[in-house]
Write a protein that binds this DNA or RNA. Sequence first.
DNA 1: CGTATTGTCAACCATATGGTTGAGTGATAT
DNA 2: ATATCACTCAACCATATGGTTGACAATACG
Lengths: 105, 105
Amino acid sequence: MNALDTTFAALSHEARRAILARLADGETRLSDLAGPFAMSQTAVSKHVRVLSDAGLVTVEQRGRSRYCRLNATPMKQAAEWLSDYEAFWGQQFDNLARYLAESGD
Amino acid sequence: MNALDTTFAALSHEARRAILARLADGETRLSDLAGPFAMSQTAVSKHVRVLSDAGLVTVEQRGRSRYCRLNATPMKQAAEWLSDYEAFWGQQFDNLARYLAESGD
DNA sequence: CGTATTGTCAACCATATGGTTGAGTGATAT
DNA sequence: ATATCACTCAACCATATGGTTGACAATACG
């Protein structure tokens, strides 16, 4: 898997996006991250692992806690990939119109 | 799975991103899509199915061929989600500096 | 008609993902 | 020293993903 693969895959789960949103407010301990989720701490830990493997989160052990920090850098590449399609975002109706025109040939 | 989940998941495979890139050049038949891939047509068909389920591709049967068309609309939502983190993209070194400063306490 | 083209479907396989529980480890507090 | 906190790890489970093959269906061509 390349970087874009792992980045998009990491972003494809709501819990992980929620974790990132939380980290946008600042560094958070793993146990504090787990709070809002109806999920065991182990599960949250696994999600953080996925985010960490994707380079989206930096984990640092201090004392008995693990502090998680957002690293948005990989998102930049993802956003750049998406931006290549910016020109097509408004074209849904154009496509529909073309489809209707073509199917009427 | 919500829309963002399926969109990001669909984008997390290189073959599917390649298919989308190809479709950006215009409508393409499924068999023509399969060409460049070291993969059976069935596998390509499955990828197109994933893209279609995510709303990124519109498939239309004409004669014995299936014509695939790009629909970038779902990407817009994904790009908007990402753009919320734009402010953090440049902060990797800031974060590193802060980390070093804190760990030096 | 028969045959090639274009694709699906079903079955199968290996591996990944997302979750659980229970046990264990290392740091901190009392 | 012991208890508690914050985790990880290993095992297990169910389901999803990504791929294959072989059989089938529908369209088009001659």
